[in-house]
Write a protein that binds this DNA or RNA. Structure first.
Lengths: 237, 237
DNA sequence: CGAGAACTTGATAGTGCTCAAACGAGGTGG
DNA sequence: CCACCTCGTTTGAGCACTATCAAGTTCTCG
């Protein structure tokens, strides 16, 4: 995915709600540049983030909430096409967001974007749409944390990530890159790294997945879906 | 709270982003009536919900996600002033929402509201604002489920509810009505009803709260906040 | 090749679950 | 007015899932 395609990527992410040429132009005028972060760097809560939202072009990012005892929870994962920092539009305090892998982003000027959505109703709808899509994912994560055991939750997460990546052309029918470490996976599903490791091994022993050198291969898709009780409808926003 | 005040209530809920007379008029023209549900009734996914969003005037509602085995998770709690069904604006599939107590709602016509936000940029911003505020709460719930033990999570939930109710004038400095059953509380924090009961008793034994006949009294506010590691900043959207 | 990060494995402890039953309050019908 | 039924709360005992602690192994990269 080259830098110039960021707008197409964003449009693909928005799905059926196609942007018209006018909206495309309005957004592309918000672009102030692109930037590359290294794995582990803080994004959004930095000099750049003060003025600009980050549209992910390539790589992964994650929002991390940390408690006093140092324990950390990942509440969002941002993939290609995801817009990161929408909540700062309303002046809300944002959490820490870190680059999970090398990360290429398009920088969209906050003020310009606010202007754009005030001028163009469709753009505003598009952002609302994105926010609601995120909500749906957050809710599903809550269900995973509250109701599923860790093995099922892990399976569900893999299904979700596969779906989301497939939508933007970053997954084949049965495989995708997963740059999250097991530690980070455990921060998503609310487990310890040790336990996450064991649940992964269990899924491997069951022959459902393979997961080596940052690549997940889904060997038995239907069984994975069954374990996870996965229904991708919530991603159809 | 009488029916006529629903708009003021909504405005109070939006907080600093005051609506101007024009926007107020635009919203109030979306009103198609008010309605009362009984405790336990399904709202939103019914005849009325097909065409109308529900603005809570009085009472509580909760969004419930149910798994195949019958286990249920509450992912949202809607209080006075909360707008319920925003996600249906984008045609997304909604979850089940039930009335936790007797529930009075204002019904806002979906099509009219869509028109209104397409016409008035400020209204659109207001809805985006609401969606982001909900996101912040969802994230905090994720942190609670992933990182806090059930006692702390329960304490955190009580802090949050107190804050949100206080904002709309439904809590005193140290007490509020809590119509959720212990079973429903447990569906929020991802525990069994038995365990939730024990954690409540522990908080009572510690002298931190009282909770009788659907009323929570916070006896030691600072200690409750400390147990929960509660920081209300995320509610300041 | 060395050093640190990430992954793996084992043993033990504990939080929270399951099953089972009893108790209390509110509502209804006889 | 009381029996009775239901829903919600409370209590107890045993078990399971997951955490914790500790150590060893593999991988990655300068």
């Amino acid at each position: 995915m080259s830098d110039g395609d960021w707008l197409d990527l964003f449009q693909k992410r928005l799905g059926p709600n196609e942007l018209e040429p006018g909206e495309r132009a309005a957004i592309s005028q918000c672009l102030v540049g692109t930037f590359t972060y290294n794995r582990g760097e803080r994004i959004l809560l930095n000099e750049i983030g003060k003025d600009a939202l980050h549209l992910v072009i390539r790589g992964w990012a994650a929002r991390v909430c940390t408690l006093e005892n140092g324990a950390a929870q990942i509440t969002d994962v941002f993939l290609s096409g995801d817009l990161c920092g929408v909540s700062t539009l309303t002046g809300a305090p944002s959490n820490e967001v870190v680059a999970v892998s090398a990360l290429r982003v398009a920088l969209l000027d906050r003020t310009a974007l606010l202007n754009a959505i005030d001028t163009r109703a469709k753009l505003s709808r598009a952002l609302l749409h994105l926010a609601l899509a995120e909500q749906a994912i957050l809710r599903e994560w809550i269900v995973g944390l509250g109701l599923r055991d860790k093995r099922k939750h892990l399976a569900h997460l893999l299904c979700e990530l596969h779906c989301r990546l497939f939508r933007v052309g970053l997954a084949t029918a049965d495989a995708f890159d997963l740059p999250l470490t097991q530690e980070q996976l455990s921060q998503v599903i609310g487990a310890t790294a040790v336990h996450t490791n064991r649940m992964l091994q269990q899924l491997r022993k069951e022959g459902v997945i393979r997961f080596e050198s940052r690549v997940v291969q889904i060997l038995k898709p239907s069984q994975l879906v069954e374990i996870a009780e996965f229904d991708g409808a919530y991603l159809k926003h």
